[in-house]
Design a protein around this nucleic acid. Structure first.
Length: 809
DNA sequence: CCGATT
DNA sequence: AACGGCTAATCGG
C-alpha cells in the first residue's frame, strides 16, 4: 500500500517496541507497525577490533533479566571528515541504551560515544529515508485493530513520490469560566469548545442555553458531555491536522486536567487512544496518535524569533490582523465569567467570539502551514516535531540526516559542564558604525545578500576545515585579524550542505518567475524557497550556539570577522567613489548620493561584485529621499513610495506607552514626509496639552514589560516587577514569560511604587507629568535633538499646576 | 551621582 | 533552548 506519510511515533512495549507509521491514501487511514527496527549507537576505541570483541560479550543484568547487545560490528565512518573505524552497537530494545552504554564506558580502550542521543522515531525516519508529508510504501500483513486498518510490516517501508492529498484540518478553541483571576482547572469548568474545519464545519459546543441560539451552537447536557461530543466530532470528521492557538501550554493541559476530574478521557487518537503529553523542562506538547496536533502559536513564535514577523503582542487578534490584514471580534477576558453567569446578549457575543477564535486560528494556520510542511520535508522530521523546533534544532536535524548519508558521525549534544565552558567563550559580532547624526537626503542603501551564509560557503567555514595542515593561509583562506585559516583543497560538510540549500533556493526562485502569484504552484514553490531561506540563515547562529552539536566557536567567530572585513571594505570603497556613508550595520550601509547619479550607484555595485569571492554578492537595496539617523541601531527613513521605515525607536517597542510611540511616529512623519520640524514641534505641544487635560485614551497609557524570571529572583525592583507583585497579591498567577501591563498612577513614591497593574487601575488618576516627561518627551527629543532643536525650542510649558486630570473612557 | 540591573 | 551589538530607563547604595 502507498500513501502520504502523516506521522511517525514510537511505542515502548516490553516485548515489542514498535515504530508506527501513520499514512493516508485517499480517504483511507492506515497505521503500519514496524517491529524490526533496531536502535544503535557507536563507540570509538583505541583498538576497534578488540573492543568489538569485548563489547559483544557484555552482559548486564537488570531486574533479573540479562541485557546484551543484539549485534556488535566494526564499521567505517568519518569523524570531522577523517576515516575512523567505529564499533556499532545494535540494541535489542531502545531502552537498553543507557544501561549498555554505561557498561561499555567502563571497558579499557573505549574513548568516545556517538549517536546515543537520537530518539527512536527520529532515528527511524533517517534510517529508512522516509520523508514526512511525502509518499511511503508499506508491505505486510493486514489486520483491523482498534477500528483502524493496521499493517504489520514484513519489510522496510520505502519512500515514494506522492502528489498531494488534501488534509482535513480542524481548529478548536476553548473558553473557560474565570470568576476570579487566572482560571484553575480544579475549580473552573470549560464552558465552550468551538470547532471550524476545512470541510465547512462551524460549531460551538456549550452547556448553557442562550436566549437566542445561533445555528452554529450545539447545547449539550454538561461539561463532560461537551468533551465527549468534541472527541466524537474530531473522529467523525476524520481530522488529520488539529490546530489551536497556544494549545500546548493552555487548552490541552487544561482540558486534560478537567477530563481527569470529570472521569472521562480525551480519546482523540485515531486508534481511540487518549491524548498524551511530552513534558520537558522548557516545552510541553500534546500528541494525538494518528493525527497531527499543531499549535499555531508555536509557528508564530518561531517566525517571531527569526524576525519574519515582528509585533508588540502575539495574541491571536494581533497576529491574525498582521498576517491576514483582517480584524476579528474581541472579548475582554475579564468579562467571560460574567457573560456566562448573566447570560443574555453578552453570552451570545461570547459564543460568537469563541467561534471567531477557532475560525481565525484555522485561517492563520492555513496561511502558515505550507512553510512548515516544506520545513518538515526538508529537515525530514515530522510536522509535529518541526512545528515546535527552534531554528538551531532544524539545522541540527537536517545535518543529522545528511551526516547519516555521508557516514559522518554525529557529535553529541554537550553536557552541562561543557555548555558552561562554551558560554564563557564569547566572540565579537558585526560591526556597527556610529551614524552621522541628523537628517540626510537622497540616500542609497546597499546590503549583502545573505552575508553570513555566503561567507560560510565562499570561505569553506567548517569545523573539519579549520586550520588544516594542507593549505597555507592566503588571501582567500586566512580569516581577517584572527590568524585562522580554512582549507581550500577539500569541501567542508557544513558549507557543502549549505551550498546545496542556497542553490536549490536559487532554482526555485527562477521557477517562481514562470508562475502567476496566487496559483497553487506559486504558493507551494514560495513556501519551499522560504523554508530553504529559513534554514540557510540559521547555520551561522547554530555554529555559535553553546548547546549545538556542531558548535564551533572559531567558525562562528571567523564568519563575523569576515563580515566586518567586507562591510569595512564596502564603506572604504563607497567613500572613495564619492558616496558619503552615513551609517552601516553588519551587512548593509546607507550612503548619501552627494550629487552622484543612480547609475553611478549601480556602477559601484558592479565594481564591488567583481572583486567579491564565491557566491558573495552586494545588492542595491533601494533609494530613500530622506532619512534621520539618531544613534547606532536607531534611525528612520522614508522610501520612494512614501512609506515610513523605522528601526530601533520606541515606535516598535512594547515597553513604551502607545502615546509616546504615536507621538514619535507623527513627529517622524512631519520631518521625513513634510520636512517640517515646526509641524513636529506643534504635534508635541498638543500632545502634552492633551495629556495634562486628560484627553487621552486609557489604552494609550499602558506600558507592557515581560517578566523574564520568577518574581523572587529580581534583585532590582523595576516598575514591571513592582506591578507584578501587586498582581500576585490579588490572586493572579505570576510566572516568567508573562507580559505585565501597567499604568503610572499619580501620587507619592518612586515610579515602581506607582506602577499599577491595568486590572487595578479603575478609578485612579494617571500621572500626566510622568507621561510627558518620561515617555513623550524623551521619545521625540531624541529625534528633535539631532535636528538641532532643544526642549526649549518646543516652547512648551509643563504647567504642573494644572488641575487634576482624568483620562477619557 | 554612578554602577548595576533590566 | 540560534548569534552579538547596542541604547536607555530605573533602581539602589
Amino acid at each position: 500500500m502507498e500513501g502520504l506519510l502523516l506521522d511517525v511515533d514510537y511505542v515502548e512495549d516490553e516485548e515489542h517496541p514498535s515504530m508506527r507509521i501513520y499514512l493516508k491514501a485517499g480517504g483511507e487511514k492506515v497505521v503500519a507497525v514496524d517491529r524490526n527496527f533496531r536502535q544503535y549507537f557507536y563507540v570509538l576505541a583505541e583498538d576497534p577490533g578488540r573492543a568489538a570483541g569485548v563489547i559483544s560479550k557484555v552482559e548486564v543484568s537488570e531486574r533479573g533479566r540479562t541485557v546484551r547487545p543484539a549485534a556488535v560490528e566494526v564499521v567505517k565512518r568519518t569523524r570531522l571528515g577523517r576515516e575512523v573505524n567505529a564499533v556499532k552497537i545494535v540494541l535489542q530494545h531502545p531502552k537498553h541504551q543507557a544501561l549498555l552504554r554505561h557498561a561499555v564506558r567502563e571497558l579499557p580502550g573505549v574513548k568516545e560515544f556517538y549517536e546515543f542521543d537520537i530518539p527512536p522515531a527520529r532515528r527511524y525516519l533517517i534510517e529508512t529515508g522516509l520523508v514526512p508529508l511525502a509518499g511511503v510504501r508499506v508491505e505486510g500483513m493486514e489486520r483491523e485493530c482498534e477500528g483502524i486498518k493496521t499493517i504489520f510490516l514484513d519489510k522496510s517501508p520505502e519512500p515514494r513520490e506522492w502528489s498531494g492529498d488534501d488534509l482535513r484540518i480542524m481548529s478548536f478553541d476553548i473558553e473557560v469560566h474565570n470568576p476570579s483571576g487566572t482560571p484553575r482547572p480544579d475549580r473552573d469548568p470549560v464552558i465552550m469548545i468551538s470547532m471550524v474545519d476545512t470541510e465547512g464545519l462551524r460549531k460551538v459546543l456549550t452547556w448553557k442555553v442562550p436566549e437566542m441560539k445561533p445555528d452554529y451552537v450545539e447545547v449539550v447536557e454538561d461539561e463532560r458531555e461537551m468533551f465527549r461530543r468534541f472527541v466524537e466530532t474530531v473522529r467523525e470528521r476524520d481530522i488529520d491536522v488539529l490546530l489551536g492557538y497556544n494549545t500546548d501550554l493552555f487548552d490541552f493541559p487544561y482540558m486534560k486536567e478537567r477530563a481527569k476530574r470529570l472521569k472521562t478521557k480525551l480519546a482523540l487518537g485515531r486508534d481511540g487512544s487518549e491524548v498524551y503529553m511530552r513534558k520537558r523542562r522548557f516545552a510541553t506538547a500534546t500528541r494525538i496518535r494518528g493525527r497531527v496536533h499543531v499549535d499555531v502559536y508555536a509557528m508564530v513564535n518561531f517566525l517571531a524569533t527569526i524576525g519574519a514577523i515582528r509585533l508588540i503582542h502575539y495574541t491571536l487578534e494581533d497576529v491574525y490582523k498582521h498576517v491576514l490584514g483582517k480584524e476579528k471580534p474581541d472579548f475582554e477576558v475579564g468579562e467571560i465569567a460574567r457573560a456566562w453567569d448573566t447570560g443574555g446578549e453578552k453570552l451570545e457575543r461570547l459564543l460568537e467570539y469563541s467561534l471567531s477564535d477557532a475560525r481565525a486560528t484555522l485561517e492563520l494556520g492555513l496561511e502558515l502551514l505550507p512553510v512548515f510542511y516544506e520545513l518538515s520535508r526538508l529537515v525530514g522530521q515530522t510536522l509535529f516535531d518541526v512545528s515546535r523546533m527552534t531554528p538551531g534544532q532544524l539545522v541540527e536535524w537536517l545535518l543529522i540526516r545528511e551526516a547519516f548519508r555521508l557516514k559522518e558521525l554525529v557529535p553529541p549534544r554537550p553536557l552541562e559542564e561543557e555548555y558552561g565552558e562554551r558560554m564563557e567563550d564569547t566572540y565579537a559580532g558585526g560591526y556597527v558604525m556610529e551614524p552621522k547624526k541628523g537628517l540626510h537626503e537622497n540616500l542609497v542603501a546597499f546590503d549583502f545578500r545573505s552575508l553570513y551564509p555566503s561567507i560560510i560557503v565562499s570561505h569553506n567555514v567548517d569545523p573539519s576545515m579549520f586550520n588544516c595542515n594542507c593549505c597555507a593561509p592566503d588571501e582567500t583562506t586566512a580569516v581577517p585579524d584572527l590568524g585562522y585559516h580554512f582549507c581550500k583543497r577539500r569541501r567542508g560538510f557544513i558549507p557543502l550542505i549549505l551550498e546545496r540549500l542556497i542553490n536549490a533556493r536559487a532554482e526555485i526562485k527562477k521557477e517562481l518567475k514562470r508562475h502567476r502569484p496566487g496559483t497553487a504552484e506559486y504558493r507551494s514553490l514560495d513556501a519551499r524557497q522560504m523554508a530553504l531561506k529559513i534554514i540557510s540563515n540559521s547555520f551561522y547562529g547554530m555554529l555559535g550556539y553553546a548547546r549545538a552539536r556542531w558548535y564551533f566557536k572559531e567558525c562562528a567567530e571567523s564568519v563575523t570577522s569576515w563580515g566586518r572585513h567586507y562591510i569595512h571594505q564596502t564603506i572604504t570603497s563607497a567613500t572613495r567613489e564619492g558616496f558619503e556613508v552615513v551609517y552601516a550595520d553588519t551587512d548593509g550601509l546607507y550612503c548619501k548620493l552627494n550629487g552622484r547619479s543612480r547609475r553611478d550607484a549601480f556602477k559601484f555595485l558592479e565594481k564591488m561584485n567583481r572583486r567579491l569571492p564565491g557566491i558573495m554578492e552586494l545588492e542595491l537595496e533601494g533609494f530613500y529621499p530622506r532619512g534621520v539617523f539618531i544613534t547606532k541601531k536607531r534611525y528612520a527613513l522614508i522610501d520612494e513610495s512614501g512609506r515610513l521605515i523605522v528601526k530601533g525607536l520606541e515606535f516598535v517597542r512594547r515597553d513604551w506607552a502607545a502615546i509616546a510611540k504615536r507621538t514619535q511616529e507623527a513627529v517622524l512623519d512631519a520631518i521625513l514626509r513634510d520636512g517640517s520640524p515646526q509641524k513636529a514641534a506643534e504635534i508635541v505641544r498638543k500632545m502634552a496639552k492633551d495629556l495634562f487635560e486628560g484627553r487621552v485614551r486609557f489604552e494609550d497609557l499602558i506600558i507592557y514589560t515581560q517578566l523574564k524570571m520568577p518574581i523572587e529572583s529580581y534583585r532590582s525592583i523595576g516598575p514591571h516587577v513592582a506591578a507584578a507583585k501587586k498582581l500576585r497579591a490579588k490572586g493572579y498567577a505570576v510566572e516568567p514569560g508573562m507580559v505585565v501591563a501597567y499604568v503610572e498612577a499619580k501620587g507619592p513614591g518612586s515610579i515602581s511604587d506607582r506602577a499599577t497593574p491595568v486590572e487595578d487601575f479603575k478609578e485612579m488618576e494617571y500621572d500626566a507629568n510622568y507621561y510627558v516627561e518620561h515617555q513623550v518627551l524623551p521619545a521625540v527629543m531624541r529625534i528633535m535633538e539631532v535636528l538641532g532643536y532643544s526642549e526649549d525650542d518646543l516652547k512648551f510649558t509643563t504647567d504642573k499646576q494644572t488641575k487634576l486630570v482624568r483620562f477619557l473612557k
